[in-house]
Design a protein around this nucleic acid. Sequence first.
DNA 1: CCGGGGATTATCT
DNA 2: GATAATCCCCGGC
Length: 212
Amino acid sequence: MFPNLIHPVVKKLPLSFYNRADVVQIAKELIGKVVVTHIDNVITSGRIVETEAYVALVDKASHSYNGKRTARNEHMYAAPGTSYVYICYGMHQMLNVITNKEGIPDAILIRAVEPIEGMDAMLARTGKPKPDNTITRGPGNVGKALGISKTHSGLLLLDDVLSIYEDGQSRIPDELIGSSKRIGIDSAGDDALLPYRFYLKGNPFVSGRPVK
DNA sequence: CCGGGGATTATCT
DNA sequence: GATAATCCCCGGC
C-alpha cells in the first residue's frame, strides 16, 4: 500500500533509466535493483541477481524478431518502463522489462532475484515448506514467488503494483557481475552465442548449474 | 555432479 | 499439430 514507507531510503527507477537505447547495458545495470510487487494485498520483493537482454528486431531469440507482432507480445512495443509478462511452456509466468522507446521492442528478462520481503507469501505461492535457494531461482520461479501472472503484463513499473527500485547503495562493481550466453535459446542460431546474460557472481539464487 | 526426459498448455502456423 | 526465453526428478557415475 505504501511502498515508500517500506523502502524509506530508496526510490523507483525513473523513466530515464529505461528510456535508453542500449538494452544490453540496462540489463547489466538492473543487477542489484529491487523488484517489488503489491499483488493480492501482499508486498513481496527481491534483489535482481540475474537478467537477460533481448534486442529489438535483430535478435533471433526475441519474440519480436524481425518486427513480429502478435497479441502475446504486444506489450513489447509499449513505452519504456512497461512490464511484459508471457507464459512459457504453458505454465511459467516470465517477467520482462521493456526499454528504449515506444514502438522499439527491447526487453530484459528477470531470471532470478534474492528474496527481501514477503517470504511467507512466497512460501504460500510456491508451496514450499521453508525458504531455500530455489524459491526465486529461474524466471518461472520468480514469477511464481512474486505472484506475477499474464494479467500483470503492460503495467508501468513506476506504478505501485509492479515496480523496480534503486537499491539505495552504491552500484554493483563490474567485477562482481558475470556474463554468459543466454539460457534456453539454442534454436536462435548465431544469436544463441551472444553474451547477453548477466548475473551476480556467487549468488546462490542465480539459475543454471553451478559453474566449477 | 551431470545429463536426459516428462510435465503442461498458451500460442502460433 | 508443433513449439516453447522452464522446472523438477531421476538415474548414472
